[in-house]
Nucleic acid binder design. Structure first.
Lengths: 201, 201
DNA sequence: CGTATTGTTGAGTGAGATCAAAACCAGTGG
DNA sequence: CCACTGGTTTTGATCTCACTCAACAATACG
């Protein structure tokens, strides 16, 4: 059983960088998320993790995880849910990167980030603070940063989003959702909302 | 209703098909694989599954899984391991599709399939039976089937693989492994081998 | 056999990459 | 308040890898 990191504040991302410099961001980690902390310490062969902002988090040791799970079915369920949620996001990424074009892919990413942030009350209405540079977004979407810039520009020109410094706003959520194709992959329910909220604290 | 599926014999694949027909294969399911333990927590699966050959499998109902896990730590550990393994494969897919070119991606796929089959003793030395059509391989790699055909042709012309009907052989494993870049993502250990072997039965 | 599915090959095209330069922005220090 | 610096974003021009279209070959199958 692994230890776990519970993120309270701040963003990070997990990524894999190849020897020649190519990098793929596997996913973003934000408040309410749980993840394996060993990556902070040990450069695992698989992937590594990097903070985007200052992070506040708590560590749960393996023994404690086991203890928590066996004692409280509620927490066990929450952990299990978090796991399943993460997997659903990962599957969506595979589909997005494998079969959506740049326009759809960037729309999906916007939708995912906004949705996940709303889940933990970190979205300010239609807007949210975006700490990641476009280079990192590109590495998450499997695109070049130049093309990400162009695509975001297009979405803005079309009136679907608006950007001001680090704050991005979803102007036409319905359209973004529709373009992204995979919005329903993130099946958010009132229950999941409550669970994630609790984990955030 | 959803339940866990334990595959004993045969291949299947999980995929997501978009409304316009574009399809992404999320992963292949082969003997020893369990899918999908998390489906109990999710309201509805965001993907569907399809058999490639006749399948032999056993179904485990949600209640029974819970029961098994709480009673036998051994089974709990095995489930946990299977989960982690599946995630590692999924992460590798994201990286492969996002950042590898067609040549590397196909090499990776070959490596992954061969490695996973060896894990459950279903590889005949350097060869294995490949039940999936190139169209399905293409949908797994995020490529067109035409390009998959060309790429396999190239690998064969270069003497790295050989194909005879449905049997594919890895002639130069070291090269394939090297080209795929992500071979070490599948961290196989003697332990994992044993666990997978047991699950196969 | 004939028919359907799958695989191969060639030609032309296009979405997104790469290259390069300019514009912008946040600090930092004078 | 301004100039200087390094990072980020934008824009234009060009190129390339993989896609599409189309025809044909091979294999599987009733």
């Amino acid at each position: 059983m692994h230890a776990a990191v519970l993120v309270h504040e701040g963003w990070a991302f997990r990524h894999r960088t190849l020897t020649d410099g190519r990098r793929q961001v596997i996913d973003f980690v934000m408040p309410g998320d749980i993840c394996d902390p060993t990556v902070f310490v040990m450069p695992r062969a698989d992937f590594s993790m990097q903070a985007l902002t200052t992070l506040s988090y708590s560590l749960v040791r393996p023994e404690d995880v086991l203890d928590l799970v066996t004692r409280s079915p509620r927490i066990g369920a929450a952990l299990w849910w978090a796991e399943a949620y993460e997997e659903a996001i990962n599957r969506a990424h595979v589909v997005a990167i494998g079969r959506l074009n740049a326009y759809e892919r960037v729309a999906y990413l916007l939708w995912e980030l906004w949705t996940r942030l709303r889940l933990v009350d970190l979205a300010d209405g239609d807007g949210f603070v975006m700490p990641a540079s476009q280079e990192i977004v590109a590495d998450a979407a499997g695109l070049s940063y130049v093309h990400v810039s162009r695509t975001l520009g297009r979405l803005e020109r079309e009136g679907l989003i608006r950007r001001l410094k680090k704050t991005w706003r979803i102007i036409d959520a319905a359209r973004i959702r529709q373009i992204s194709q995979l919005a329903d992959n993130l099946h958010i329910t009132p229950l999941s909302r409550k669970i994630q909220q609790r984990l955030k604290q």
